[in-house]
């Protein structure tokens, strides 16, 4: 065994490609990209790619590894955004702190929802998550004020302009936002990589394989799924706060709607759920399609990017169930050798 591996690596010239190397390389490239890319609009597009990559990675943290399909994750995004914006406008609290509160609210909600829901099988779980997210969205959409807090219903919330103010999480140029979302993404990716190798990761995969068997072996499914779900919800909520600060406007339909939930899930799945880099790959493939479809056709071919997403999803389920990352990984292994991980 040992000799074979050694032979492989010498044959490829000693270049060892493992997941950590790839991860670090990608992050480095992304960190240096703004030196080359100075056009505001392209930077904006890249921020959107990173944002969706972050959201997809957060989704993947629980769903990719437990093997359940949550199509209600957008509600955590909305919670994060609404809490941090409201704390800013009502209490003057910096969104950097507000987003932590949003994250905690999302975590608590996730645990409460997850407890009765996670033991439901496949489609039942998915439908339940959709229902929960819709309840949150519809409730906020139709509530102008709750306990004295102006939720403003469907009108949405506007973040007052503060120009360049770090503590208000606002900047007049795009570059700071770029580095912030890149750092968030880096944290999420590292967290996923760490989780994969940790006890949590192994337990999740055991539960995915066979929940009852895992329980029989002493793995407490409720505890581990709740933990993963809570972390995932926290990360998603932070993303929601970022979105709110970047666009300075959020409303229930865009922040908590089914479309966002589907986007997060589809990107993970097409990239490769249950892997660290899959969601990033999925976002990198799909987000530009959406931007191009909108920019080039200027409304002439509406919904085109979703048709592409749908076709990609169908192809993926039928022919690439492990996502696009699988063929890429096989290619890398063939040409570069290196560890499986």
């Amino acid at each position: 065994m040992k000799t074979t591996i050694a032979a492989k690596s010498t044959r490829s010239g000693g270049l060892r490609l493992n997941q950590t190397t790839v991860l670090v390389t990608i992050l480095l490239v992304l960190a240096l990209a703004p030196i080359v890319v100075t056009d505001s609009f392209t930077l904006h597009s890249m921020i959107m790619v990173l944002f969706f990559a972050y959201m997809a990675t957060s989704w993947n943290f629980v769903c990719g590894y437990v093997g359940q399909l949550s199509l209600g994750h957008a509600m955590f995004n909305g919670m994060g955004g609404y809490v941090s914006v409201l704390m800013f406008t009502q209490l003057g609290l910096s969104p950097w702190l507000g987003m932590l509160f949003g994250g905690v609210l999302a975590m608590v909600t996730a645990v409460l929802i997850g407890l009765p829901t996670f033991r439901l099988k496949g489609p039942y779980f998915t439908l339940t998550m959709i229902a929960f997210a819709e309840i949150v969205r519809i409730w906020i959409e139709n509530t102008n004020e709750f306990a004295g807090i102006p939720l403003k219903g469907a009108e949405g919330l506007i973040v007052p302009n503060r120009g360049d103010d770090f503590w208000a999480f606002q900047f007049s140029t795009k570059l700071p936002y770029y580095y912030i979302i890149l750092s968030f993404l880096a944290v999420a990716l590292v967290a996923t990589a760490w989780m994969e190798r940790s006890k949590l990761g192994f337990c999740l995969k055991a539960i995915r394989g066979d929940r009852d068997a895992a329980e029989a072996l002493g793995v407490n499914p409720t505890f581990y799924t709740s933990l993963a779900f809570a972390i995932s919800a926290f990360m998603t909520a932070i993303g929601g706060s970022f979105y709110a600060q970047f666009f300075r406007y959020i409303n229930p339909e865009r922040s908590m709607g089914l479309e966002l939930s589907i986007d997060m899930a589809v990107m993970s799945i097409i990239g490769g759920q249950g892997t660290v880099l899959g969601p990033l790959l999925g976002a990198a493939i799909l987000t530009p399609i959406a931007e191009i479809a909108r920019g080039e056709f200027g409304g002439g071919l509406l919904g085109l990017h979703l048709v592409v997403y749908g076709l990609a999803l169908m192809l993926c389920v039928l022919y690439f169930p492990k996502g696009a990352i699988e063929p890429i990984r096989k290619l890398c292994l063939r040409y570069f050798g290196g560890n499986e991980r």
């Binding site: 056009d39 505001s40 609009f41 904006h44 949405g156 666009f247 406007y249 409303n251 865009r254 909108r294 920019g295 200027g298 409304g299 509406l302």
Partner: peptide
């Protein structure tokens, strides 16, 4: 030069920036 907001605020904002800058 027409730009489609898709009746959505964030798309409208992005399109506005594109039309002004590009």
């Amino acid at each position: 030069v027409f730009a489609d907001s898709q009746s959505k605020p964030d798309v409208g904002v992005t399109e506005t920036e594109r039309v002004i800058a590009r």
